[in-house]
């Protein structure tokens, strides 16, 4: 299992843009938003939590189709499926690798982007915590979508159509945590819900993804 994680991380780094691509996309979205809505600091600060969350979600979506499709094309997935590793574990590891290369960098970079979006200073911790707890769910749910579309040529658009509705609860709770944080309200409830969504997705969805992968491999 660790070997698989190590390999996936190595591949992401060597392919170039494993870490960088999602971050750059995040940056571009954050730069474009003020052009769209105007440079007024108050407005930007108010929409910052939502914008940052939607940007994180899209950045995550960007690299999803690579989670399984590369391994599918070069036959590695067949070999992994016949290996001693349980396919559920393979799926979970690949989702974690995806999170480490896209979700986690976003968590660390979030304060900088929050600064660009004039998020009130007291909202920073809530934003970082919400991204830290929420982005794993994005990767795990995304891996499920990637498993569904692995056999489909040019499945990228379909993948977005399937995955984005599944992202709704995570987005709502995540953005709510960071919005309440920015407004200085108590955000315990949405934070617990967000963590619940993340952990439940991490615990249960790999089974669905593995089942779907088996269907796609046969």
């Amino acid at each position: 299992m660790m070997a698989l994680l190590k390999r996936d991380m190595r591949l992401a780094v060597r392919a170039g843009g494993g870490f960088g691509l999602g971050l750059s996309f995040f940056l571009i979205v954050v730069v474009l938003i003020p052009f769209g809505v105007g440079p007024e600091t108050g407005l930007l600060g108010r929409i910052a939590p939502g914008v940052l969350w939607v940007a994180a979600l899209l950045a995550c979506l960007l690299s999803l189709d690579r989670v399984f499709s590369l391994d599918f094309e070069d036959g590695s997935l067949d070999l992994l499926a016949t290996s001693p590793l349980p396919l559920e574990g393979v799926v979970a590891i690949k989702a974690i690798a995806h999170w480490l290369t896209t979700g986690l960098p976003l968590v660390f970079a979030a304060p900088v982007f929050a600064l660009l979006m004039s998020l009130p200073v007291n909202g920073y911790s809530a934003l970082v915590v919400s991204l830290f707890l929420g982005t794993p769910a994005l990767s795990v749910i995304g891996a499920f979508g990637a498993a569904l579309t692995v056999g489909i040529k040019r499945g990228g658009l379909l993948l977005s159509l399937l995955v984005l509705p599944l992202y709704v609860p995570t987005l709502i709770f995540g953005a709510e945590v960071s919005r309440r944080g920015a407004e200085g309200q108590d955000y315990t409830t949405p934070l617990l819900m967000l963590a619940g969504v993340s952990f439940a997705a991490l615990a249960l969805l790999p089974f669905a993804s593995a089942a779907v992968l088996r269907v796609n491999l046969r």
Binding site: R7, R10, E73, G75, P84
Partner: peptide
């Protein structure tokens, strides 16, 4: 069973040794 098909499951960005090491540790 050990299966080998038309495609080898070789990662082009890894070295020969790394590829073999990976499968060795998986198995």
């Amino acid at each position: 069973m050990a299966y080998a098909a038309h495609v080898d499951g070789i990662k082009t960005t890894l070295t020969v040794e790394e590829n073999l090491h990976f499968w060795a540790s998986v198995f």
